[in-house]
Amino acid sequence: MGCFCSKNTRHTPGYEEPTVLAAETPFTVSEVEALYELFKKLSSSIIDDGLIHKEEFQLALFKNRNKRNLFADRIFDLFDIKRNGVIEFGEFVRSLGVFHPNAPEADKIGFAFRLYDLRHTGYIEREELKEMVLALLQESDLILSDDIVEVIVDKTFNEADTKGDGRIDQEEWKEFVSKNPSLIKNMTLPYLKDITLAFPSFVVSAEVEDL
């Protein structure tokens, strides 16, 4: 039997109960509630509709709503699980769960793989790796000759593509990360352990207020 919750709380479309999200992620209920405070802030920074739009995501990352960045686009696309162009609260929490210090390493490795599999082929291809290196250089205002870029890409690709078929599959990626654990360092956000301190939740008092 389903449960129809008619509590008169001011929740946005896409809101999911913290108990449900806590059960599916490494977060506790109070951490999910604190994430809701962060989500509300991010999702109302430009358009106050309770959904994170790409411009709002860019604004939060770069303090600039118009700054396009290949990697931020990839992160946004992976967070946007329903692929409807916005990040809902449930998507936000589930995706951030991968970045929790207690999330399984396999989830982090898998997320990074999907991030770098730009064309969703199930492989990281040499051209994709080169495209990402060029994007990084452009973002950092670093100028390297095309020859040097080719050497960097070739060297890494040869180390990772152990089967030598010109593409990196998930198994090769897992092996490559195990040899180079620093590659998934950015898949862990220590902040998430202190999220209740950074964004204290006022959910209980808000619900009392609504009664």
Binding site: L38, L61, D73, I75, L96, M132, L136, I152, F176, N186
Partner: peptide
């Protein structure tokens, strides 16, 4: 010659676009 010895994925992982800690800045 330093960049040549660099791991391409390591280079990429330094992108600001992958640094989600900015989301938590007040």
């Amino acid at each position: 010659a330093a960049p040549v010895t660099m791991n391409a994925f390591e280079l990429i992982s330094t992108s600001q676009g992958l640094n989600l800690s900015s989301l938590f800045e007040k």
